[in-house]
Design a protein around this nucleic acid. Structure first.
Length: 292
DNA sequence: ATGCAGGTCCTTT
DNA sequence: AAAGGACCTGCA
């Protein structure tokens, strides 16, 4: 047990000015699943760095812990949101309402591996269950960390999950997804694929194809990883929520019996170069907004 | 209790 | 190419 010197806490604490930012909406918008409420903020880890963050005013963020310097990048505070809003299709009232509901929502910049792994476990699962699975994997296989007296865990590296084995993963409550997660961990641990190499792929289309080569990663999950883990802000994941929203509100442009592929094609064209942001506003509005 | 949930894969037309 | 069924698990 080590006694903190006066100033030691302050050294790892930061106060960050923010604009157009809403921490709670961002962490509750289905991009990430491991942050825990602690005091008036949230405790968790960015990669292997534990951190606590709280929005103490509309325009100020208080953060502390070893991960504090990584917070701004993680939360996408440098994203040009006003430019993003201007890029949206003019006169789209549906998107306008979703944006007005949570303009402070940001697309996170998550470490690619934990993003890929978490979304592999997300198929056909509700958000609460994805969270349960994510926390179970971290608690059982991840590095134990501490921030402000709160125990948190890093996401285990591919090598650790490869070593753990499919059966142990299954015990974390992920069912048949355990096989896909284990296969992905094995491939990365054996250097048969490299997420760093994928990050360097310029073409979004090529990156999508690479991601889809992982077992259990189809179009939807690949787009989530592109958006939340590789900063490809034009990626537009179409899940059942978004599909319902699009069919309901853009039905005229889509046609009555448009197949899912047609819905995806429409979305990636209609919403433009920052379609991922549009998707996130629409998704959060559909889940948390009035009347749904 | 039976159905369904941030999909994807495999098989059959 | 397109449609249909299976798949783990937990919660309503």
């Amino acid at each position: 047990m080590e006694v903190a010197l006066p100033g030691a806490v302050d050294k790892a604490a930061l106060s960050i000015p923010v604009r157009h930012f809403d921490l709670e909406a961002t962490l509750d918008s289905g991009q990430v699943f491991h942050w825990q409420r602690l005091g008036n903020g949230f405790a968790g880890a960015i990669g292997e760095l534990p951190v606590w963050m709280a929005q103490t005013g509309e325009s100020v963020l208080e953060v502390s812990g070893p991960g504090a310097p990584a917070v701004a990048g993680y939360l996408g505070l440098d994203h040009p949101v006003e430019e993003i809003w201007r890029s949206f299709p003019i006169g789209d009232a549906v998107l306008g309402r979703a944006l007005a509901f949570s303009p402070g929502l940001r697309i996170l910049r998550q470490p690619a591996w934990e993003c890929l792994a978490t979304f592999i476990t997300s198929s056909l699962k509700q958000v609460a269950q994805i969270r349960r699975i994510s926390l179970a994997i971290r608690a059982r296989f991840g590095k134990a960390l501490n921030v402000r007296g709160c125990d948190v865990h890093a996401y285990p590296a591919p090598e650790e999950l490869a070593e753990a084995g499919e059966t142990a993963l299954r015990e974390c409550g992920m069912g048949y997804r355990a096989r896909s997660l284990h296969l992905a961990a094995l491939r990365l641990a054996a250097n048969e694929a490299s997420l760093d190499a994928m990050a360097a792929i310029e073409s979004d289309e090529e990156l999508l194809d690479e991601l889809r080569r992982f077992h259990g990663v189809g179009d939807k999950i690949a787009n989530c990883v592109m958006l939340f883990g590789f900063g490809r802000l034009g990626s537009f994941p179409v899940d059942v929520w978004i599909e319902r929203t699009l069919r309901r509100h853009y039905g005229k442009a889509l046609g009555e019996e448009a197949p899912l592929a047609r819905v995806r094609e429409f979305a990636s064209g209609h919403f433009g170069p920052y379609g991922g942001y549009a998707q996130q506003y629409l998704f959060h509005h559909a889940r948390r907004g009035p009347g749904a």
